[in-house]
Simulated scan of single mutants.
Amino acid sequence: MPSVVDAAVPEHRHEHHSGGGFTGAVAAEWTKMWSVRSPYVCLSAGAVAAGIFAFYYGSIARINDKPLQPVGNAPVTSLLLVQFAVVVLAMVTVTSEYATSSVRASLLWVPVRRRVQLAKSLVSAAVAFIAGTLFGVLGIAVAWVPFRGHATFEMSEALSQVLAMGFYCALIAVLTVGVAFALRASAGALAVLFTLISALPSVLTGLGGDVLLTINDCLPQTAGTYVMQGADDAPYPRVAAMAILLSWAVVGHLAGRLVLQRRDA
């Protein structure tokens, strides 16, 4: 016969629940990402632009009779132009929720705030890695035709560049999520990211000078280029370039986490 104590304990307290936690947060972010049109639009536009720019690069290299180069240089160069497809994809996972106030629901479902940001970063990075890799494969396939013998193809080198493109896109996505959490608005986040990733390197290299070029070497896009192309004239080895890129992603993530922890949604 059950005791009075046993009878007073609700039956559901003896049940073992599964799911939830960080795994549940990641699953929720994955579902939310693919339930709207923006990822499909960003990835489709990025793929089209990557193919066009890679074809253009191969054509220009042939016309200008440039020395033989890895065919993978074409998609790497095109990625510097189309990387904002990945930036926008990662950014809207955060800013769209602030714009609609649905971030409050996300924080109610996953009350550990750092877990929400980490889940968004992980999902965005995974999608960005796949996207960057596919952009690389597509770029190599498209650029090979217009190069017409003005490029070399080695499987190991091409594979290295393609994976490096995925690595670069993944870390840029993590940086983007962090900046988006720190600023919370699409316009502000995109302005900061565009300045940091693209505009600032152009200004610094245009002005020239040892100090400005040294600063440029420490920026994410410059380090990412060295990671993807492995240039012989790089001021530091590829491992150091990867460390610089990773540092930017960590700094962005921590900045977003600080604001998320201290400010109300």
Results as ranks from 00 to 15, higher is better:
Asp6Pro: 03
Ser18Trp: 12
Thr23Pro: 12
Gly24Phe: 11
Ala27Gly: 11
Ala28Ile: 08
Glu29Trp: 05
Trp34His: 13
Trp34Cys: 08
Trp34Gln: 09
Ser35Lys: 12
Arg37Ile: 10
Ser38Asn: 09
Pro39Glu: 04
Cys42Tyr: 14
Ala45Met: 15
Ala49Leu: 12
Gly51His: 01
Gly51Gln: 03
Ile52Gly: 10
Ile52Ser: 03
Phe53Lys: 02
Ala54His: 04
Phe55Met: 11
Tyr56Ala: 14
Tyr57Gly: 07
Ile63Ser: 14
Asn64Arg: 15
Lys66Asn: 13
Pro67Ser: 04
Val71Asp: 04
Val71Trp: 06
Gly72Ser: 11
Pro75Ser: 04
Val76Lys: 04
Val76Asn: 07
Val82Thr: 09
Val87Gln: 01
Val88Glu: 01
Ala90Glu: 02
Val92Gln: 11
Val94Lys: 06
Tyr98Arg: 07
Ala99Gln: 14
Thr100Glu: 05
Ser101Asp: 14
Ser101Gln: 14
Arg104Val: 01
Leu107Trp: 03
Trp109Asp: 13
Arg114Ala: 09
Val116Asn: 12
Ala125Gln: 02
Ala125Val: 02
Ala128Asn: 05
Ala128Leu: 04
Ile130Met: 13
Thr133Glu: 04
Phe135Tyr: 05
Gly136Leu: 00
Val137Trp: 08
Ile140Leu: 00
Ile140Cys: 08
Phe153Pro: 07
Ser156Gly: 10
Leu159Asp: 03
Ser160Pro: 06
Ser160Asp: 14
Val162Trp: 06
Val162Gln: 07
Leu163Cys: 04
Ala164Gly: 04
Leu171Cys: 01
Ala180Tyr: 09
Ala180Val: 10
Ala180Asp: 09
Arg184Pro: 04
Ala187Trp: 05
Ala187Cys: 06
Ala189Ile: 06
Ala189Thr: 15
Ala191Gly: 13
Val192Met: 14
Val192Trp: 06
Phe194Gln: 09
Leu196Asp: 00
Ile197Leu: 07
Ser198Phe: 13
Pro201Phe: 02
Gly208Phe: 11
Leu213Ile: 00
Asn216Glu: 07
Asp217Ser: 12
Thr222Gln: 03
Gly224Gln: 00
Gly224Ile: 05
Gly224Lys: 00
Thr225Val: 01
Val227Asp: 04
Gly230Asp: 02
Gly230Ser: 05
Asp232Val: 00
Ala234Cys: 01
Pro235Met: 06
Pro237Gln: 08
Arg238Pro: 09
Val239Ser: 10
Val239Tyr: 00
Val251Thr: 06
Val251Asn: 02
Arg257Pro: 05
Arg257Tyr: 15
Leu258His: 15
Val259Ile: 15
Gln261Thr: 15
Asp264Glu: 14
